[in-house]
């Protein structure tokens, strides 16, 4: 039988991806870190999330990795992709070479394989920097009254910084944070910049200086700009860091 025209159109050759995953289970005393290689057929518009899910379903059910939203909003799937931090769900395999090496984000407590406890780090940072609205005389606020209005431009600015999903990529991309465990990183300093903008927060620059005016805060930053270059949400981190540094330096004088 003669092939129909449709059958003569050559199909795009799909690649076989070689995915090397750094595996280790710290809860198992017999486990030691090692690379395990998986091979899968690449599909159209395949993300690393899809690839990892397929590996777990068809090849190794013990593979640990975190996902919730698969849309770049929850911040769970940060990992090192060929040495660079990024979100697995937002990374298309077609943008990567045939061999893809995955490792857990450095700088965080390892739960197992690609799963790290970013939440613990973020919680510690949040408690240390007190990243919530501070308001004097809070008992006197009438919670039945209509909230004070905010200019749309200011609300936009706040929202821009609030977009941080605490995925930990900026910490993994930061040489300073990798060297100094107590450095609060771009995730922390971005939070300070966010609450500094917020008119509902009555803290002054002197208060913020107490929190980040030292080597573990804004003056510890060496401007390596890994945070700026690897933030999956494209937050304006270099801008915020330079701005906060100027404000805190003025406060310190």
């Amino acid at each position: 039988m003669k092939p129909t025209p449709m059958q003569t159109i050559p199909l795009k050759q799909s690649r076989t991806l070689r995915i090397e995953i750094l595996r280790h289970n710290p809860a198992d005393p017999d486990s030691h870190p090692h690379l395990q290689v998986f091979e899968i057929e690449e599909a159209e518009t395949m993300t690393l999330f899809i690839a990892l899910t397929e590996i777990r379903q068809t090849q190794d059910a013990s593979l640990q990795f975190d996902f919730v939203c698969r849309a770049g909003i929850c911040g769970s799937c940060g990992m090192l992709i060929n040495g660079r931090p990024g979100l697995a769900c937002r990374t298309l395999t077609r943008e990567l070479p045939d061999t893809i090496r995955l490792a857990p984000l450095p700088g965080f407590e390892l739960i197992g394989d690609l799963s790290v406890n970013t939440g613990k780090w973020m919680r510690g940072m949040s408690e240390r920097l007190e990243t919530w609205v501070h308001r004097e005389n809070i008992e006197a606020i009438d919670i039945d009254a209509v909230e004070q209005r905010m200019a749309p431009e200011l609300a936009e600015q706040l929202y821009e910084l609030e977009r941080c999903i605490e995925c930990g990529c900026c910490i993994a991309a930061c040489g300073t944070a990798q060297m100094h465990e107590d450095f609060v990183g771009a995730a922390g300093l971005n939070q300070i910049a966010r609450f500094r903008l917020d008119p509902r927060d009555t803290r002054s620059d002197a208060d913020y200086y107490e929190l980040v005016g030292d080597e573990s805060g804004v003056f510890g930053c060496m401007t390596l700009l890994g945070c700026e270059d690897y933030c999956p949400k494209n937050l304006p981190l270099a801008v915020q860091l330079a701005f906060l540094r100027r404000k805190m330096a003025r406060q310190g004088l």
Binding site: L80, P106, G175, Q178, T223
Partner: peptide, 21 residues
């Protein structure tokens, strides 16, 4: 530990500004 951390980081990330530093 810091020395190891920064060298592991440099080898892994191949990031221009970190290398410049």
């Amino acid at each position: 530990r810091e020395y190891r951390a920064i060298h592991t980081h440099l080898r892994s990330i191949h990031h221009a500004d970190t290398t410049v530093w």
